[in-house]
Design a protein around this nucleic acid. Structure first.
Lengths: 184, 184
DNA sequence: CGCCCCATGTAAACTGTTACATGATTTC
DNA sequence: GAAATCATGTAACAGTTTACATGGGGCG
């Protein structure tokens, strides 16, 4: 039901459509969560029926705009206060790193360089988001949460980039090491 | 099919049972992947039927020990070489951080302190794993991959711990800030 | 001998992805 | 006016979790 709570929380900041929800996830919380429209629309319908959101009008191109009701906000609040977070992680790229010994050294180097390039892009993007925060973000509660979480995104991407570069160097050393061993 | 590749790769290092696979995931790659036994046993049966693993004997208490066949190793290798990693992340704890503005400041502080405590534990554990690597890990391919990936685990937990402590401080400041504003 | 942990399995329910489908609006 | 993007939805499938079920081994 995490998707439900995520939707309720994102529509509590300001009204939006299902399409908006997908975009907001992708643009500001992509390093934390993502969802497809095919999962969101049925969930919106269920939330609407349960009175957790209400339709508050139409936007551009007839977009259906929803807003979280007080009942919906109470539900998210209870979830946040009464349950402990699920810290389970599933990260395919990290899993692959465990298995690089199965492929040639140069392919492993390429893998780590690829990871570095990917995280460099995301780091640039998130540093941009962090830079565009208004100076008075401390005055607006949702902005405080946003600022703290974007900080995590930047730190995460920075860490991944540094690690991937370090890992590529390690494998490069390994490649030379093995070449010397084979030559002798 | 990531679970299948993960199983094949983990049983390629050394033979083991389904139970062992769950444990190996949990103990050395928990920050990258996890799986329940209920998912692993049927997958093992499918791999066995497809000739990707073979039963190589029995262990303690009649454990069925499997080993990845050359065919299975080729399959993992092709997966690693021919497909690009799925970097999609789903992290409930980070998502919650986005929504802390919905709960009282002191509850938010408690949330970040809880995150800090959790990651401190995992950091200690992983630093232990890193410290117990043999000095000649560069001589053994699976150990090279393992060493590089454990480094990521340590860096990840360190980053999360630092961030959570920073976030708790930020929210603490926010709490005082709001208290002063309410008093005036 | 009773309890806890090891070890393997199955079934139902839930969550998430991919593919199919449709129409409206902006842009070139 | 053709193509790309916006916007909403459904259906089939794949992946994951939770609950049910069972038996053996070690320990007090």
């Amino acid at each position: 039901l995490t998707l439900r709570y995520a939707l309720l929380a994102i529509l509590a900041i300001k009204p939006g459509s299902g399409y908006d929800a997908v975009q907001r996830f992708r643009k500001s919380a992509g390093y934390a969560w993502h969802a497809n429209h095919s999962q969101i629309y049925p969930e919106l319908a269920r939330c609407l029926e349960a009175g957790l959101i209400k339709e508050v009008g139409r936007g551009k191109r007839g977009k259906r705009l929803y807003s979280t009701t007080p009942k919906g906000v109470r539900l998210v609040r209870d979830w946040l206060l009464k349950s402990s977070p699920d810290r389970a992680v599933r990260n395919e790229a990290t899993l692959r790193s465990f298995f690089t010994w199965l492929i040639p050294d140069d392919a492993a180097v390429a893998f780590y360089r690829g990871e570095a390039a990917y995280h460099r892009l995301l780091l640039d993007e998130l540093e941009g988001v962090r830079g565009s925060f208004p100076d008075d973000w401390r005055e607006d509660p949702p902005l405080v949460s946003g600022r703290i979480t974007v900080e995590l995104g930047v730190r995460y991407e920075r860490m991944m980039l540094d690690w991937a570069e370090w890992a590529a160097e390690q494998m490069e050393m390994q490649r030379m090491h093995d070449a010397i061993r084979q030559a002798t």
